[in-house]
Amino acid sequence: MSETGVIHDIGYQRYTGPRLGRGAGIGALYVHGLRAAFGLGRSAKAKIFPWLVASVALLVAVIVAAIKSQFSEFTFSYVDLDDQLSWMIIFFVAILAPTLVSRDLRSNTLPLYFSRPLRAADYVAAKFLAMVTAVWLLLGVPQFIMFLGAAFTTKTGFKGVWHEIQDLVPAWGYSLLWALLFTSIGLLIASLTGKQAFAAGGIVAVFLMTTPVVAVLAQLPSTTANHLAGLTSPITLINGVGSWALDGSIGFDIGRYGPIYAIEAFCLIVACLLLLLARYRKVSAL
């Protein structure tokens, strides 16, 4: 009998290749999260929203770059882009955070993760970094496009390009601040519920409800209260830190309370992360 054409059942093969350990697991979860943020490896439906937001951001950047190259008196800085897109970021975060964490809660997938070398802190770190990267890319890439537009149309040669770089890098830092603060708040709220719609609603609510408080405090007859009004809402908090750190006049006047804004932003991010960690410590014990 001929040997060809016979299908051999080779049976079960033990795996003898490399095992990369915990670090690789965290890396895989990070990449998975970042891809999921933009709907990669997911259904077409999941791609619509992130790419809609991303294309709006890109479009704004292209238009701004085009106008700036034509009219030099048009002032729209890199930092302004973040502020103008703030509502887009809120919606992006409101959709993204539940995608990253609520789905795992909803479908009960966490025991599968935590029976592997992964720890609660690893899970939180991977998801947090993935989301920070996604939000930062959403802002940082359009800013880079604005930079390219400005750099190629500058009339002062290399000096002009250098000047633009000096503006771009702090603006990237400012975008990172947006990403850090919004991610930590968004993930914390999303980690509390397995229902994606509730999580999204909760995130938008937190950002929405705090805005009127700022408006009320800003109308009070006390200057100190006016200066500190921004502390009550995440958006104005970031504006405050930005205008202190970048010496610009972003949003409104915060007087000499800049450091307080920075401290609150820092504490808020750390507190959210610690709460998130505590939450997953509990969940990971099943």
């Binding site: 795996y15 290749g17 490399p18 095992r19 990369l20 350990g21 915990r22 690789a24 697991g25 895989a28 979860l29 998975h32 599968l112 993760y113 592997r116 070398p117 992964l118």
Partner: peptide
């Protein structure tokens, strides 16, 4: 999940 377990 294989990758989370550390497989390339």
């Amino acid at each position: 999940l294989g990758r989370i377990s550390g497989l390339p």
